[in-house]
Every structure is written in structure tokens, then in C-alpha cells.
Design a protein around this nucleic acid. Sequence first.
DNA 1: TCAATATATCAATGTTTATTTATATATTTA
DNA 2: TAAATATATAAATAAACATTGATATATTGA
Lengths: 102, 102
Amino acid sequence: MEQPGHLPTLAFLAKSLADENRLRILLSLGNGKKSVSAIVQELQLSQPLVSHHLKELRRSLLVRVERQGPFIYYEMSDPRIVEILKALDNLATGLLAARTTF
Amino acid sequence: MEQPGHLPTLAFLAKSLADENRLRILLSLGNGKKSVSAIVQELQLSQPLVSHHLKELRRSLLVRVERQGPFIYYEMSDPRIVEILKALDNLATGLLAARTTF
DNA sequence: TCAATATATCAATGTTTATTTATATATTTA
DNA sequence: TAAATATATAAATAAACATTGATATATTGA
């Protein structure tokens, strides 16, 4: 069986996905590019908080950035991200189901 | 496009995967069940640290537990876990490659 | 029952992280 | 150039988290 590679990188990526608000932002960006203020409005989060989370998402390369005048647009950088989140979701569901059947 | 479900659960699972030593322990347990002391020896980590991480892995249902006399054996609870970690690994590799090609 | 072995837990410590409030920076228009 | 808009950043704060050294708990055999 082949093992996953660089563990620090894996841990770093997982950490980037380990906050609910950040996940909400990331998933919102899976629906196409959005400006910071649009995210702020849509998710009812504070602007500095959104900026902070976007900065983390930039660091982990999970988002792409594009400036247009005063607006900065962000979008999810890779469709595999949603697939992985779905797989995690299925895993969680499965683990919970298996636990309650004991 | 269908969105992943319960975000707090997703964040919780991601957090459980967000530490390198914990990943090392989890992956080691993907090769069959092991006692705490075996993990301690194999990974050269302190016993309390291993116990602490195992406790977190138990909480997130990522491991199964079985006692035999003084020994407690742990193993990975679901093969999907490794698949997800591999997918994350591939994602990381891909994102890094895409960045360096800009 | 006691001693030995295995492992969980406790307490302390330092580091990391999310959030808020305030301010700095960047872009555009009048 | 100044004002308005968009957004990044700074600083403070509280909470969460990983690790270590010490101790408590569980199991077994003599």
C-alpha cells in the first residue's frame, strides 16, 4: 500500500480546512469568484475576519486571487477541493453511523 | 452542485488530521492494529503524547480500540481515511505545481 | 496481596489560532 | 488633491492546542 507523502504539508492543508467559517468561505467560493465585500455580506461575517481567513486560504493555495480596481475577487483554485470535502463528509457520516450501530 | 453537509463536523474532522504527529500515528495504524507501546517505540514519541493523540483519534472515530490484558490495541477505523489523505496529498502536489508554473 | 507492566490522566507551559476594534493601504473619481 | 470605497493589517484578547514530566489507574502473574 502506498502511503501519502509529505506529512507537514498534509497537516498544513488539514489545518486550513479546520475552521467552520473558513469552510463556509471556501465553499462559497466554489460557486464562482466573489469580492471580499460580497462574502462579508453573504455570510454575515466581519470584513477583517473574512480578510484573515482569505489570507490563510491564499497561503494554502486553496484560492485564486484577481484584482479589478478597488475590488479583489477570490475563487476556489481547484475543483478537487470540493470532492475531498465531500469524501470527508461521507466518511464522517459513515463513521457516525457505524458508531451508533454498536 | 451538491454541497458537503454539516460544516462543524467537517471542521472537527479536519482538525483531527491537522497535526503531523497525529497523522504519523494514524497512518501507522493503517497497517494493522498496534499497542500504545508499539507506537511509542516505532515513532519515537513519548507515551503521554501518543496517548493524548490516540484520545483525539478516538473522539473523531478515526480509530478502533480493543483491550487485551494490559495491552490496548488501536487500528484505523475505515480504509477511506487513507484514500482521503492520498487525495489531499495529490491536491497539495497539484496546487504546488500549478503555483510554480506561474 | 504485592509488584510489574501498560496506559490514561493531570498540571504546567509555551505556542497557535479565531475574533474584534482600530487603522493603514490601494484604487478610483470628482 | 481630497474624498469615497474596498480591503489588508495591526494589536489586543481569549480560547484552543501540542508537549513534557509526574502521577493515577487498569491488568496480570507470582
